[in-house]
Simulated assay, not measured.
Amino acid sequence: MNYQFDFNFLQGNVGLLWDGLKVTLQLALVSNIVGLVLGFGLCLLTLSRWFFLRWPAQMFIEFFRCTPVLLQIVWFFYCVPMLFNVFIDPITMGVLALGLNLTAFNAEAYRAGVQAVPHEHLDASVALGLRPWQRTLYVILPQALRTAIPVLMTNGISILQQSALVAIVAVGDLMYVGKSIATEAYRPLETYSLIALIYFALSLPIAQFVQWLERRQDTALAR
Rank of each mutant, 00 (worst) to 15 (best):
S125C: 08
V126K: 03
V126S: 12
L128K: 05
L128N: 10
L128Y: 13
L128G: 13
G129S: 14
W133N: 09
R135I: 13
I140C: 11
I140F: 01
L141F: 14
A144M: 11
L145H: 09
L145A: 12
T147Y: 03
A148P: 12
P150T: 07
P150G: 13
L152E: 15
G156Y: 10
G156T: 14
I157M: 11
I157Q: 07
S158G: 15
S158C: 15
I159G: 13
I159E: 10
L160Q: 08
L160T: 11
L160P: 11
Q161G: 12
Q161L: 15
S163E: 04
S163T: 04
S163M: 05
A164W: 13
I168Q: 04
V169A: 01
V169L: 03
A170Q: 04
V171M: 05
L174C: 06
M175I: 09
M175Y: 06
G178S: 07
K179N: 04
S180G: 02
I181T: 00
T183L: 01
T183F: 03
A185G: 03
R187E: 02
E190Y: 00
E190W: 02
E190D: 09
E190T: 02
T191C: 06
Y192D: 03
Y192K: 02
S193F: 10
S193D: 12
L194I: 06
I195N: 02
I195T: 03
L197H: 11
L197F: 11
I198M: 07
Y199C: 07
F200N: 09
A201S: 05
L202V: 10
S203N: 05
P205D: 06
I206C: 15
I206V: 15
